[in-house]
Amino acid sequence: MSSIKYDDYLLKDKLPLFWCGGCGNGNVLGSILRAFANLKFKRQKTVVVTGIGCWGKADDYINTNTFHGTHGRALAFATGIKLANPDLNVIALMGDGDGATIGGNHLIHAARRNVDITAVLVNNFNYGMTGGQYSGTTPEHSFTSTSRYGHIEEGFDLCKLAAAAGAPFVARGTVYGITQLDKLVEQALCKKGFSFVEVITPCPTHFGRLNGLKTASLMLNWIKENSVTKNQAEKMSDGEIRGKFVTGVFVDVDKEDYSTRYKKLQQRAAEAVEGGCDK
């Protein structure tokens, strides 16, 4: 058994957690910290970058280096950090409003660029911090504080988005499937290149309240009942799969990451005669 424990990375004096009762953010935080411990991450060599929103407060509880920037921009800050010092473990924590709505452009480009960052995107289908308005992942027909007549837009399938953008590791877990989530986060952290983990998370306070799921248990059960594994999903029709949370690893391929490619570019540039790049 590892001598390093998850709570070696937890700022216990900042507890209780800021999040509402039944919010799944604490579970995801636990998964991340357990993965740090299992992988024996050095605090000095680790930077956790957060955006803005409920999940954006996660850095308050982590004792590695942290960077708390602006809404939607965590991956852009993280890109600068990683490219400036490729030896760092860089982890970006984003919510669905944060990372997939206002920051969606950075998500697809970080995936395309294949910067060696692990992005853990917590999806609770709404903007919790501002009172439960609809986001880019809010399911059609569901109710939020700004879709009181039923939402008319379709939500993103973020894993398909990240995969299409070229991310070499894409996975989805849920807070209900917490042991699976632990594994997915650890796999993502081990991946060289851009790794993306979407986590389906309960928000009983806002999303749950307006959709008949106002207790933590009701929300967790809803996630449980609607979760299907990737293998199960492959045998289901499009109609059957609608509204389900497909879990598992969707992409796991080897691809040279940005910093490795850039190092080669630097070597080529160093050997090129002055002005040779102009040709």
Binding site: C20, G21, G22, A216, S217, L220
Partner: peptide, 13 residues
């Protein structure tokens, strides 16, 4: 008791 928010998950699960 200081950290618990009485969400009921432990009781349920």
């Amino acid at each position: 008791g200081l950290w618990c928010k009485k969400c009921g998950i432990c009781v349920e699960y």
